[in-house]
Write a protein that binds this DNA or RNA. Structure first.
Ligand SMILES: [Mn+2]
Ligand SMILES: [Mn+2]
Ligand SMILES: [Mn+2]
Ligand SMILES: [Mn+2]
Lengths: 218, 218
DNA sequence: ACAAATTTTTAGATTTGTCTAAATTTAAAT
DNA sequence: ATTTAAATTTAGACAAATCTAAAAATTTGT
């Protein structure tokens, strides 16, 4: 497996191309910042290797082997992100680029030992679940903060926007994963939210609320 | 810098192509398990970039920039080796292949943090010195065990042969870096050595003695 | 010094991954 | 049901890194 092949599999997975759903050539091209014609070439190659199902003009979906391969890379990516944050004091907005490189290191022992060193974390620094060594993967029970009804409480469990600017914004306002959040009131005019986070009262825009995932209490 | 370019610089450095000495095309090809014609191509490319001096038919030597670049890669390689041994319980015969990959990860912060985590080690698991962040590099004061006169004492500080089989051989016979060694007697017939290592008496072949580096006492 | 052996370079081909521009297929709109 | 628009594929080109085979330069041996 080349690095490029691995990145294609990861992109297809992230676009939901597992199971039956198939992903459009253009969507993959956009996700990978490349051209549709390049995607077509790679689709043929990956189909040849049994990693994707590809029918001309019908898009691409991962085979079972393709899914497992993608999960293995995502597992490495997220474990490395945890390592960088927990062991090397990186902040959560700095880890992605480095993990994009580290995810391609080929050594089963290495990633198993990193997993052990971190005490088998379940989630990465952005709240995304880490696939297990045997390829089990469970999406988290979560919803957008903007979808929470008034008066309901929850825990902040993830971010939708993973850009540096958004993550640093959260740092600045001391909003972190694990924080308890209560929706106090909604402002109809601009869909902004009055929330209680820990013991602080905060007024956040709809743009923030649609980029924070929470797990509703109860 | 591509991975291939980095590997060429490292190979040239290891063949002694810094300073004035120049390295032969064939020697580089052999070191890198590639063909001389490929080396010629890369020599031109690296010369173009100002990383090596290259004169047709006269071999290759590193420029100052080339030396610093090579040292940075060697620094990363050796720091990662220490990390694997000290933090992830790899044994010293398993680290090289993984470090060959990790040395190409591009993140200054990452390697600085690894350095800090390891408390700024001076030597890698095989006793090789680790260049500093600012490119200072000091070869160790050492000699082959086979060159030590009878009755002299020293400390085991490195290995010449870094193959897995040799390293595991040393493990099996409980010979490790840092051990005190005394040459008790030499056998003229086969140049084998009677040594005292710690409190044990050992009889080792010349092949072993020419692959162990020691620092002579006094 | 000169022929022979060795080393090194060139020329041309190959693989991987990418691109542009043109052709084709599918989807959408009238 | 056509026409138009959008998505997708093909054809041909290119850069990087490699190779083989042949040519050129250097070194070695007598
Ligand atoms: Mn990431
Ligand atoms: Mn990647
Ligand atoms: Mn090594
Ligand atoms: Mn390398």
């Amino acid at each position: 497996m080349t690095r490029s092949e691995e990145n294609y599999l990861k992109a297809i997975f992230h676009l939901g191309g597992s199971a039956t759903a198939s992903v459009a050539t253009n969507a993959i091209a956009e996700e990978m910042e490349t051209k549709p014609s390049s995607v077509t070439d790679m689709a043929k190659k990956l189909a040849e290797k049994g990693l994707v199902n590809y029918v001309k003009y019908q898009g691409v979906s991962l085979t079972e082997v393709g899914i497992q391969t993608a999960l293995a890379i995502i597992r490495k990516h997220r474990l490395w992100e945890v390592f960088l944050v927990k062991k090397l004091d990186f902040s959560w907005d700095e880890v992605h680029e480095v993990a994009e490189q580290l995810e391609h290191i080929k050594s089963e022992k290495l990633i198993d030992k990193i997993d052990e060193l971190l005490d088998y974390p379940k989630y990465d620094p952005h709240g995304d679940p880490i696939p297990t060594k045997n390829g089990e993967f469970q999406e988290r029970d979560k919803q957008l903060l903007s979808e929470l009804p008034i008066k309901s409480k929850g825990i902040c469990v993830g971010v939708n926007d993973t850009s540096s600017t958004f993550l640093r914004f959260l740092d600045k306002h001391k909003i972190a994963l694990g924080d308890a959040i209560e929706v106090v009131e909604k402002e109809d005019f601009d869909d902004s939210l009055f929330i209680k986070i820990g013991d602080r009262n905060l007024h956040i825009s709809n743009q923030i609320a649609t980029n924070l995932f929470v797990k509703k209490d109860g």
